[in-house]
Design a protein around this nucleic acid. Structure first.
Length: 595
RNA sequence: GGUCCCGUAGCUCAGGGGAUAGAGCAACUGCCUUCUAAGCAGUCGGUCGCACGUUCGAUUCGUGCCGGGAUCACCA
């Protein structure tokens, strides 16, 4: 299928015939032919002149001559320095196109009984405040990777771990109680997660004020924190929760319930639906058994104060506590427990954690501990680490109110889409419901594309003005290209499917380029899956759309009078649309029939 | 300080041993009485952070340095 692989053995034969010498496969290096030269693929011959014992130019020419004479798919060649630019015959490209159109969903692999089971965990938020821009990058990455893995033949299980207990939620509970316990999502009209988040902010402000007062009275910052009454109340509340205090537990359930309801609404907007939830409140005690096991195996050790540790200095890391001196578990102990639960529940081939890069150290330690405990699945764990989203004004800080709220941002994107659509004035004949759907497709598509087009591991800048742009390297640009093809197909009339029947000399260079680009889709998909990098797919879709727009501009398609030729061009356009749609689907982005 | 990540056009980002390093935005110029101008074509813009090394060939690989970020809690 891959035309580079197709040429491997002909090139070997050429060397055998021309120079009577063997060459190793890894010496045969192909690359894409640069746009300014003619050709479909380029062989770099520098590595081969040791065998040919001739200059790069002569070697390239002799190999080129042999290929044209002896290989029926090689039409012609040209040589620039040591680069042999090879052009395939039109028949080859038409056959390639036939093969592409006859496959059900080009580039996708089926999921079968034997497909590996891959778990992917995201977004795993805390339950004390609403989702923000960082969660959006997390969710878009997680869902895009899921789709990419499914498309490459994996069964995917989506999980989400809720950090639903502890200090943070206690702060929201305390503030709510102090404020008089009247507010609910129903009577305030606030989304549950926003209501709870409001009280979290209230607590933070009150705490800050209390600290300032204590510091003003002459205490050091540390002493002030120790003497803080609010701080003490939060600890008490957390302790009561741990002791199962009925009132605290019931308030806790109520407030978490509000948050889950709020998250559910956001999830629906974002199109995600975790199949399995884990709750820290369920597992936070389970880790203790594993700590015991680790002690028995000599992996962990106990310090004088009763706390339990692992020494990872031999692995270039530090000592890490796994159980506090008061016998309670820490974050990593809980994660050990969750990893065990996941494995027990699903018997996984692979388990991916989509978590920001600030937790790289944590996951390194976690995986290492599991390995030392002898867990066989430890080698199948993978931290999909992504960079932070920064704002032009700097970092987002929830305490300073500089976060971009996910729900607000979604609403902004929708109204942007509405505004731009009205501006373009192409809405006639579409119902209100159609238009609402269109705004959602454009608004959400634009946002997703904006966050996904950047390499996940890099930190990225979120510029609000750029994010709502619909021109250039954006989601709406690609969506527009798709809609325009759909319009072409509506106007072009009946298309005959099946084998293309046009004369060889009728195929245009740009059409070959398009077939070449389309035929690269499976490779793109594989690369995205192997490197867990949706930006590869995002950039590919842009490239394809851009190339089609050039073609569209310089070629008559639905207006072509030669019937067979029109049919081919419509077929090609339709195939471009299909690949754009499939690529965008992998990113979780829908494409509109009209826009 | 240790470890990890990043430095490519004014800005946001691609590329990743090979040819004259690419897009988008911004600025400027053309193209809508023919298939959707959310488009297309063009102009302007680069010491690929710096140095040394490996190589026929380095923006790409290695080492060192400089600059930016993350992390190294009995927080999660």
């Amino acid at each position: 299928m891959n035309f580079k692989e197709i040429l491997n053995s002909p090139v070997k034969q050429a060397f055998q015939a021309v120079y009577g010498a063997e060459i190793a496969t890894e010496k045969i290096q192909f690359q894409e032919t640069r746009k300014e030269f003619e050709g479909d693929v380029t062989l770099t011959v520098f590595a081969l002149i040791a065998v040919s014992k001739k200059s790069p130019e002569i070697t390239a020419n002799e190999i080129g001559d042999w290929l044209v004479a002896n290989n029926e798919i090689v039409a012609k060649y040209n040589v620039v320095k040591g680069f042999l630019n090879i052009s395939f015959t039109p028949q080859y490209w038409l056959q390639e196109f036939d093969a592409i159109t006859s496959s059900a969903k080009f580039g996708f692999s089926p999921i079968t009984e034997k497909s590996p089971v891959v778990m992917i965990e995201y977004p795993s938020p805390n339950t004390n405040k609403p989702l923000h821009l960082g969660h959006l990058r997390n969710i878009f990455l997680g869902s895009a990777i899921s789709e990419i893995l499914k498309a490459t033949g994996n069964k995917v299980v989506h999980t989400c771990l809720y950090n639903d207990r502890g200090t943070n939620i206690s702060k929201s509970m305390l503030a709510w109680t102090m404020a008089g316990s009247k507010d609910t999502p129903e009577n305030t009209g606030l989304k549950g997660d926003h209501l709870v988040g409001k009280f979290y902010v209230q607590y933070s402000n009150a705490f800050k004020a209390e600290l300032e007062q204590l510091v003003a009275s002459g205490l050091s910052k540390e002493d002030a924190e120790k003497q803080s009454k609010l701080n003490k109340q939060v600890s008490d509340l957390t302790l009561k929760w741990e002791n199962g205090d009925a009132d605290v537990r019931s308030l806790w359930s109520k407030m978490n319930g509000w948050v889950y309801q709020g998250f559910e609404v956001t999830y629906q907007w974002l199109g995600i639906k975790p199949e399995k939830f884990y709750y820290e409140s369920d597992v936070y005690n389970l880790g203790k058994e594993t700590v015991q096991e680790g002690l028995e195996k000599g992996v962990f050790f106990r310090k004088d104060d009763g706390s339990i540790w692992i020494d990872l200095t031999a692995d270039g890391l530090d000592e890490k506590v796994v159980l506090r001196s008061n016998g309670t578990t820490v974050y990593i102990t809980q994660d050990i427990a969750v990893a065990n639960e996941k494995e027990r529940d699903f018997n996984l081939d692979k388990s991916i954690y989509v978590v920001g890069n600030e937790q790289e150290y944590h996951f390194k330690v976690l995986f290492l501990i599991l390995k030392k405990l002898g867990r066989k699945y430890a080698d199948n764990l993978f931290h999909l680490s992504y960079g932070m989203v920064e704002l032009p004004s700097g970092k987002m800080k929830s305490r300073e109110g500089t976060v971009v709220d996910a729900d607000d941002l979604i609403q902004e994107m929708l109204s942007m889409a509405k505004e731009k659509t009205a501006e373009k004035g192409k809405t006639e004949g579409q119902s209100d419901a159609d238009l609402e759907a269109l705004y959602r497709i454009i608004g959400m598509g634009g946002l997703r594309y904006f966050l996904l087009k950047v390499d996940p591991k890099k930190k990225m800048l979120f510029n609000p003005a750029e994010s709502i742009e619909t021109e250039g390297h954006t989601g709406p640009f690609i969506q527009y290209s798709y809609a325009r093809i759909k319009s072409l197909l509506r106007k072009g009339g009946e298309i005959q499917t099946g084998k293309v029947s046009i004369a060889d000399d009728k195929i245009l260079p740009k059409e070959i380029t398009l077939i070449l680009t389309i035929s690269g889709f499976p490779e793109v998909l594989n690369e995205a899956a192997n490197t867990y990098n949706p930006s590869v797919v995002a950039n590919y879709a842009y490239e394809l759309a851009k190339e089609f727009n050039q073609y569209y501009h310089e070629t008559h398609i639905s207006k072509e009078t030669d019937v067979a030729l029109r049919n081919f061009r419509l077929q090609l356009s339709g195939q471009v649309a299909a690949v754009i749609q499939n690529a965008m689907q992998l990113l979780g982005i829908e494409v509109p029939e009209k826009m």
